[in-house]
């Protein structure tokens, strides 16, 4: 079952990679959250890598979407790691967040695995 606006690919035994496409409609948040959580739960996933390489800017709306996704999947024991965050996106995001995000961050999948986290 595919979820419109994103590709969810299994990488390794318990890990998934989420790549958002330009057509991702985060206003349809509830349906997206349910779809992703259901897919991860069925596959007994333990980690979701969210690829942000195509996201040049993260505004409060997009951050709210990332935050909601991280909290939702944490409820089913899946941790979310954002990878490939662009300098412009990190710059913008650092301006308005006040607390530690609900997700972890890493340069890439390899970087996350290397640190043994």
């Amino acid at each position: 079952m595919s979820i419109p606006g994103l590709h969810l690919t299994r990488i390794g035994s318990d890990d998934f990679l989420l790549e958002a496409t330009r057509s991702l409609n985060i206003r349809d948040q509830d349906r997206l959250l349910e779809g992703i959580a259901s897919r991860l739960q069925q596959a007994r996933a333990s980690r979701l890598y969210y690829d942000l390489s195509e996201q040049a800017l993260i505004d409060p709306v997009y951050y709210a979407w990332l935050d909601a996704l991280a909290r939702t999947i944490r409820a089913i024991n899946v941790e979310m790691v954002c990878i490939h965050m662009q300098p412009t996106a990190a710059f913008a995001l650092a301006q308005f967040i006040r607390e530690k995000p609900a997700f972890e961050t890493a340069l890439d999948i390899f970087g996350w695995q290397k640190t043994g986290q």
Partner: peptide
């Protein structure tokens, strides 16, 4: 502090 946060957000 924002600089540190941005560095952490990039995964470093």
């Amino acid at each position: 502090i924002q600089m540190v946060r941005a560095v952490q957000l990039m995964g470093s």
